[in-house]
Structure formats: structure tokens, C-alpha cells
Amino acid sequence: MALKTKQTVTVTGTSEIEGQQVAYFSAQIPQGVGDSTISRNITNQTLYDANRKVVRADEAEFQAKVYQIEDNLLAQ
């Protein structure tokens, strides 16, 4: 059996309201062939419920950054 390795880029982000973390975002992007994974973890449900639109906008911005990194890696 031969050793196989895979190198990935990890991207993380947080959504904060009034200095308090509401959500945590994480992405694993393979360098080369493979599927990216993106996850979201709500860390303050009360603030999330009161600020869903803002947090969702942050999440969309995070995903756009992940897509940009994916595109840059594929262009290399």
C-alpha cells in the first residue's frame, strides 16, 4: 500500500453582532481534484433569530470568497 496525501485550503469566518459571535463558517477546499465542503455552526441562537438577514448575508459573502478561492485554484 502506498501513501496518498491530499493538500487542502482551510477557510474560516465568523458572523458577529455587537461584538458577539453568532455563527462560525468553515470550508475545506482541495488543491486539485475533489469536493469542497462548507459548514455553518450557529453559536448564539438568540442573536441569530433576531438577526437572520445579517447573518445570512455574511454567510453568502463567505461562500462567495470560497468560490473565488476554488476558481483561483482551478485556474492554476
Rank of each mutant, 00 (worst) to 15 (best):
S15D: 03
D58K: 09
A2Q: 12
N72F: 09
V66R: 04
A60G: 06
V33Q: 13
A2H: 05
Y24D: 01
I17M: 06
G19R: 05
L47M: 09
Q21H: 09
T43H: 10
F25R: 04
S36F: 09
E70S: 01
Q63D: 08
Q68C: 07
S36R: 06
Q7S: 14
Y67F: 04
R40G: 03
Y48T: 06
L74I: 08
S36A: 15
A50N: 08
G13L: 08
T37M: 13
M1I: 07
F25Q: 10
V33Y: 07
T37C: 02
M1V: 10
Q76P: 10
G13S: 01
E59D: 10
V33A: 05
I17V: 15
I38A: 03
N41W: 01
V66G: 04
K4N: 02
I69V: 15
E61R: 12
S26T: 00
G32T: 14
Y67C: 05
G34S: 08
I38F: 09
V33S: 09
K65T: 12
T12L: 10
D49W: 00
V55E: 00
E70A: 03
L74H: 00
F62C: 02
L47I: 04
D71G: 14
G13Q: 02
T8C: 06
R40N: 11
V22A: 12
V22G: 04
I29S: 12
T8D: 06
I69Q: 05
Q76D: 01
S36I: 06
Q7I: 14
K53M: 07
Q31C: 02
F62A: 14
K65Q: 15
P30S: 11
D71Y: 14
T12A: 09
E61C: 03
E61P: 12
L47P: 01
Y67S: 12
T37R: 12
Q68D: 15
A57I: 00
R40Y: 02
E61V: 00
Q68V: 12
L47D: 11
G34T: 08
R40D: 04
T43M: 14
L73N: 02
R40C: 11
Q7R: 14
I29W: 10
T37A: 07
Q31K: 14
E61D: 13
K65W: 11
Y24K: 15
V11S: 00
G19K: 13
L74W: 01
Q63E: 15
M1E: 07
D35I: 03
V54K: 01
V9F: 12
V9M: 00
I17S: 09
A64I: 03
A64K: 14
M1T: 11
V66C: 09
Q28F: 06
S39Q: 15
A50Q: 15
N41H: 11
A57N: 07
E16Y: 05
S26D: 08
E70G: 02
T5V: 10
T10Q: 11
Q68I: 11
E18A: 04
Q7N: 13
S26L: 07
T46S: 08
K65F: 11
